[in-house]
Design a protein around this nucleic acid. Structure first.
Length: 401
DNA sequence: CCTCCACAGGAAGCGCAGGAGT
DNA sequence: ACTCCTGCGCTTCCTGTGGAGG
């Protein structure tokens, strides 16, 4: 039986030549339209090769604008160059989503330098000293903090690392911070801010033309020749450019489209696959979004979906007629019923409004302020996607438990 | 014009979990 | 091991707002 499955899988036709090259985490050798940024980062980092401390860099840009790719690319090149020329400069990459405190970051860095030793359970001070003595031997250490906004005690971390430079005669410590959150910089301690932002760089999102070129390059490497039509690539680029200019989702879109082609045993990826892939990706996002919602918020969303289905007689708003539009108060009362049904107590009306605002930020619902024709001031709520699907999704979630 | 309605959203404060300091 | 502190989710209370209706 397994032999049969293996044999089938082995013989299965595929449009991919090397699927790994189109996975989201893969760092490509070439980064189109980022030459300027690469040389900017390299110029700063290059000081380390001349036994000088590179300035700290703060890189800001939206998701999928190539921030991580560019820094990782420069990091790899620098590490290569340093080791082949016997220079004591090294980069160390930390993703702060998983290492989100000073202690975790420091242990991760030290562990990278001494892979054979185990630092679990050692005090923060010990690990800090270990890092300092490593740098103090003449090493120029550049620490890349990706998603730096996720660090809980960033002020202390930055302060500690900067101050560390005063305590060592040789070598140095520098930071490259990467973030996609604009407002995060504002909450920083002014001293942290000024030392972290010695050099500031902004990565603009890609436009449709650039995305097309990026996708073409990836397709050439990851797909078999002539399996992806030009218009499919253009479509994927156009979708992503319109929404965010995000290269990562554009690439994901093509990966998904390729998978769909394989599944239906087609040997080409066309517009149709890209369109289907987009729908699938959207649904996946909604699915995971809804799944991670707190229970009470699921009740609220469920109440909205339920009412949207029931209230089919269209609600009239002066001048226009819309389907599935609900009043805030009406939803709250329904939500109370839903919560009661599941034997949970409902949150207060005030907090329910916070839930509504949050659901809107997530893009699960759309709200507008009531205008003329409606008593008082209230919000009109509408589900952003199909009510039946949302209702079904949440119902299946609760049946599982 | 005033009052009422049906909410929006700010401010203060409460209870709790979990991390830091001792 | 213990306190202390802090952030988080939430409630309570309150003021503000814009249209309906008298």
């Amino acid at each position: 039986m397994p032999e049969q499955i293996f044999q089938n899988e082995f013989e299965k036709k595929t449009v991919f030549s090397d699927r790994n090259l189109i996975m989201p985490h893969h760092t490509p050798d070439e980064l189109p339209f980022r030459d300027e940024q690469i040389s900017d980062v390299s110029n700063v980092v290059a000081h380390a090769l001349k036994d000088k401390r590179p300035e700290n860099i703060f890189i800001y840009g939206k998701v999928g604008a190539g921030k991580t790719c560019v820094t990782k690319h420069v990091m790899n090149k620098l590490n290569e160059f340093a080791s082949s020329n016997n220079v004591c400069a090294e980069c160390c990459y930390v993703n702060c989503r998983t290492h989100n405190s000073k202690y975790r970051i420091l242990s991760k860095i030290v562990k990278d330098f001494y892979p054979e030793e185990n630092f679990l359970g050692f005090s923060a001070a010990f690990i800090y000293e270990k890092l300092l003595s490593h740098a103090g031997r003449g090493n120029h250490v550049i620490i890349i903090l990706d998603e730096i906004d996720k660090v809980r005690d960033l002020d202390e971390l930055v302060y500690g690392l900067i101050r560390g430079n005063d305590e060592i005669d040789k070598g140095s410590l520098s930071i490259i911070g990467i973030s996609n959150n604009v407002r995060f910089k504002e909450r920083l301690d002014p001293r942290t801010k000024s030392s972290l932002c010695q050099q500031e760089m902004v990565f603009a999102p890609y436009n449709a033309i650039e995305l097309t070129e990026i996708l073409k390059q990836r397709v050439e490497k990851a797909f078999k020749p002539n399996t992806v039509s030009d218009s499919a690539i253009n479509l994927a680029a156009a979708y992503s450019a319109k929404e965010s200019g995000d290269a990562r989702t554009a690439i994901m879109l093509l990966l998904k489209a390729g998978e769909l082609a394989d599944k239906s045993e087609k040997s080409f990826v066309t517009d149709e696959e890209v369109r289907k892939a987009r729908k699938a990706v959207e649904e996946e996002i909604i699915f995971s979004l809804v799944n991670t919602l707190p229970e009470q918020q699921k009740f609220v969303l469920y109440a909205i979906a339920k009412l949207s289905l029931e209230n089919n007689p269209y609600k009239t708003i002066t001048g226009r007629i819309e389907e599935g539009v609900l009043f805030s108060g009406e939803v709250y009362r329904e939500y109370e019923k839903v919560a009661k049904h599941f034997k949970e107590s409902a949150v207060s009306a005030r907090w329910y409004r916070e839930y509504i605002s949050e659901l809107e930020i997530y893009g699960l619902i759309v709200t507008t302020n009531s205008g003329k024709g409606i008593k008082g001031q209230t919000r009109l709520i509408k589900l952003a996607s199909e009510p039946a699907k949302i209702k079904e999704l949440i119902e299946s979630e609760f049946l599982k438990q």
